[in-house]
Design a protein around this nucleic acid. Sequence first.
DNA 1: GATGAATGAGACTTCATTCAT
DNA 2: CATGAATGAAGTCTCATTCAT
Lengths: 201, 201, 201, 201
Amino acid sequence: MTNSVDRRTQAAQKRRRLAAAAARVLHEQGIERTTLADIAHEAGVPVGNVYYYFKTKDELVRAALGEHRDRLDELTAGLDRLPAPHDRLRALVETWVSQRETTARYGCPTGTLAAELGKRADDSLHAEAGAVLRRLSDWTAAQFRAWGVPDPDDHARTLVSAHQGMSALTHALRDPSVTTREATRLLHWLDSLRAGPGISP
Amino acid sequence: MTNSVDRRTQAAQKRRRLAAAAARVLHEQGIERTTLADIAHEAGVPVGNVYYYFKTKDELVRAALGEHRDRLDELTAGLDRLPAPHDRLRALVETWVSQRETTARYGCPTGTLAAELGKRADDSLHAEAGAVLRRLSDWTAAQFRAWGVPDPDDHARTLVSAHQGMSALTHALRDPSVTTREATRLLHWLDSLRAGPGISP
Amino acid sequence: MTNSVDRRTQAAQKRRRLAAAAARVLHEQGIERTTLADIAHEAGVPVGNVYYYFKTKDELVRAALGEHRDRLDELTAGLDRLPAPHDRLRALVETWVSQRETTARYGCPTGTLAAELGKRADDSLHAEAGAVLRRLSDWTAAQFRAWGVPDPDDHARTLVSAHQGMSALTHALRDPSVTTREATRLLHWLDSLRAGPGISP
Amino acid sequence: MTNSVDRRTQAAQKRRRLAAAAARVLHEQGIERTTLADIAHEAGVPVGNVYYYFKTKDELVRAALGEHRDRLDELTAGLDRLPAPHDRLRALVETWVSQRETTARYGCPTGTLAAELGKRADDSLHAEAGAVLRRLSDWTAAQFRAWGVPDPDDHARTLVSAHQGMSALTHALRDPSVTTREATRLLHWLDSLRAGPGISP
DNA sequence: GATGAATGAGACTTCATTCAT
DNA sequence: CATGAATGAAGTCTCATTCAT
């Protein structure tokens, strides 16, 4: 019994390791240019073995998106420890700034995956990517709401959109300073909301 | 001589037709999922013939980016006919709105190509995509400058970034209303600049 | 463990089988006129599987050259069992005679491969072919040296050159008797050296 | 009339130019690695035009062999001006020495073409290459005969074989000194025949 | 005859997926 | 479960040859 639990745990760990490897490699190389062998190699798992954990490559992509969602949850969970919603949002923006070098090289993980998946005939994976962005939007709206800002959903959409925009431009121009500057603007905007609603971003 | 000119023109036209087909199909299917046969079929040309005009698939991608650049130039040339820079910028934003359905389905052509190209080891095509975005940014900065807005480059970067962001989100959520709403916000922002500089977006 | 060794052995055997098939077909059809499908078919293996063992066609060519080198080694190892160097060299020449029909049809395996490879821009495979010929030359020189013939390297070069020449001519004229006659001459020459050095071939 | 003759002459010149270009490029790149475009480009002729002079690629190969035969005839015609057969043969060997650098890079033109053609299912071109070698052999035999050496055909075969051998080895080892040394040996051999028959090569 | 363009067969290579042990 | 090996569909690219003007 203990043995079987161990096994189950071990299996779960291997699944996780594969998902994490997939998240990493797919972010860096894109979906279509990444082979299963790349992911297996990154995870230190024999190629043939991958299929015991994921029946198709698409399932690995799905797992990678799940991984990104989990990381987002960890991030927001951390931010939730800050007392003021306003500070949480500022910290979110600062997180983006701290990732600017990676963004310049590989773009936003979820955003670029969504861009690639959005052109498929089959929508299911694309929707999964969209869900991760919506999850961020929902959390952000909750902050605006808690803060008492009117139209919290609109403000959230604007902030997430701004993140996608600055990530895309940072990536396209390979210039981390795009992130720095846009983030500064966003922080000013957040501060301007503090004084009270009325000033549109 | 007339004959040879005709031929040269015809060849150039076919090249252009292939480039246009490539621009369309690559936008809709992404680079890696598009085969040369797809492009050849879209252009109504046998596959083998494509190689008479473009030696590699990458050259076709490059041509597609050139096509997008040309369309951008046509767009801005049209906008330049408007007398006031402020109106040109408003019209730009409204152009984006008019494209919202296509954006919801396939994303911003240049932006999604840049996202896909940015993960390659070889930078040259990615840089080409970045150049198209920078071209838009330069034109935009020129409008802000003509308008007398301070920090025109910063404002231009913000506007282009906003476009990339709203396109990415519109695409990821398959929701054209994202574009509509963000565009509305941008128009307010442009109007607020009219009153005089000082109010940050 | 036994299992894994078995597998490794099996894999090595298949690699060898492919290399042997390549050596055969490349000898008979030449490099450029031989397709991977030809080699796969000769080895009784599906085409796709070939790439599990050899990443490119050139690697198969390299393996074929290795095969020829191995056969040369087996040949000289057999000759080394003869007590007198002089007899070993005579036996070498007689081996050539025994292969005259194949030579008339397809030429010397190493020699014709070298001829084809020598015209490439990239030298690496050509050098490999040259190394096989040099290996024969080295063994031959060792025999002359052991025999006490002066200038053993010169004599070896002459013998190997004679072999290449008679093989080329036998092949070009499709006439095995060229080999027979030139071999007779070479045997006389070897005998003349027996009496003592001094008589140039 | 003059006009038509001019035209016929011009056409013949173009044919010749193409054949010469083919001889050159095929020698340097081998048959299979040379494209019709390569030859057309080398001759300064548009690709489509080649087919008015040669209906297939194989006919161009045949023409290239004819070109090599013509050059051989020019060579022997020049040697025929020397009074003594013995000197003609010495001069022949010295011609080979003078070509050693080209041989090291590309091998003997006729020999390497023969090697490549000899592996085809269809014999006709291969026979053409063999005929060029036999032509050299015939001329050589005539010299030995005029000189009074017995078994002139055997001696001729040996000399031509020696040339093929030293060319092949020079090419395979990319070492022109192979030619120099073997040529020295051949000159000694020719001199030894001068004293009178009896000493076998 | 001359020429740029067209065509289609076929080559090499990659890779997701499956299989046998 | 584990794993090296197997498979075949598909993609990119080349090129001899033909065609239209």
